[in-house]
Design a protein around this nucleic acid. Structure first.
Length: 291
DNA sequence: AATATGCACAACCGCCAAAGA
DNA sequence: TTCTTTGGCGGTTGTGCATAT
């Protein structure tokens, strides 16, 4: 409400983050936790606005993020969720804890949008039938849940994967490092080393390649150590920081996390996507699982 | 070999809603 | 109750690399 953008203050740096800035930010979050972003620039000396710090953390530095190489199952899930939720990237990301909303959004816009609209599939999403306006889709889920469920069923039936294909690991391309990964590789290694120490602090981190499970576990342990996870859930915000998603949880169900899992299980109880990729089977109810 | 075009992704911008004073 | 502050979300843009011409 007339509030000037935080970045309007003078001397705020913009553009790509440097490895040094990343290290500073990671160090800060390691010490103070991923909140109180307004204090980050002053506390760290970073010439970045608080919003930029938060974005950098949630979209890039946050542990447990998987980057690039979306699997077929992830792609199917995105298509299905998009048909159901519309462009609610954050809500979609809550089903895919290893992916950020920004990643999903980018993947949709660059890979799926054209293909999806070209084939005519997902016409409902295109027409916005299920892409309710802001603040309304949660209510739709609550009041029109049967219709929503039916829509999801239809979406699933369109792309239903045969059981044999579900367990089959499609041959992945030889993991060509993406441009960004390649250009940032050396820098990312430094960050990874720091994060490695971080996860060790949590007690279950493994040097080198750490599974997402162990990563999230150790991160969870870290925040338990800090004793701050409760404050996170106390604000009514989800670990992923999804204010609006948590609103859906509150509106549709009794409690924050577990009830959302129940809704999710209910919506997806045909078993599509369950267990195979660790996507929607992730216990979202644990506020410490991801942040 | 040089240039044009397309693609992928990181980051920014504006708006909105929740929380607090 | 109203206003301000802060965090979060979705849309959009900018930049660098790859591929085509």
């Amino acid at each position: 409400m007339g509030r000037p953008p935080c970045c309007e203050k003078g001397g705020v740096k913009k553009g790509p983050w440097t490895p040094e800035e990343d290290l500073v930010l990671v160090s800060y979050v390691q010490d103070h936790g991923p909140w109180n972003w307004r204090a980050v620039p002053t506390s760290t000396g970073l010439m970045r606005c608080s919003k930029s710090c938060r974005l950098r953390w949630t979209n890039y530095l946050r542990p447990g993020i998987k980057r690039g190489n979306f699997s077929n199952q992830e792609e199917k899930l995105i298509i299905q969720l998009q048909a159901l939720l519309g462009n609610r990237w954050a809500a979609m990301a809550s089903y895919m804890p290893e992916r950020t909303d920004n990643d999903i959004k980018n993947y949709w816009n660059t890979h799926l949008k054209k293909k999806f609209t070209k084939t005519g599939a997902g016409a409902e999403a295109k027409s916005g039938r299920w892409a309710a306006p802001k603040g309304q889709w949660e209510r739709r889920l609550q009041t029109d849940i049967h219709t929503a469920r039916q829509a999801l069923r239809e979406a699933l039936s369109l792309d239903r994967v045969p059981p044999s294909a579900k367990t089959e690991q499609l041959p992945q391309p030889p993991a060509p490092a993406s441009q960004a990964q390649a250009t940032y590789a050396s820098s990312a290694e430094n960050i990874a080393r720091l994060l490695e120490c971080w996860t060790h602090r949590g007690g279950s981190g493994t040097a080198g390649k750490v599974s997402s499970e162990s990563r999230s576990t150790s991160v969870s342990a870290f925040f338990n150590d800090e004793g701050v996870s409760a404050s996170n859930s106390g604000t009514g915000r989800t670990p992923a920081g999804n204010t609006r998603t948590s609103k859906a949880e509150d509106a549709g169900t009794a409690g924050p996390g577990p009830s959302f899992s129940m809704l999710e299980s209910w919506l997806l109880d045909d078993g599509v996507g369950h267990g195979d990729t660790g996507l929607v089977s992730v216990p979202l109810g644990d506020p410490c699982e991801f942040f």
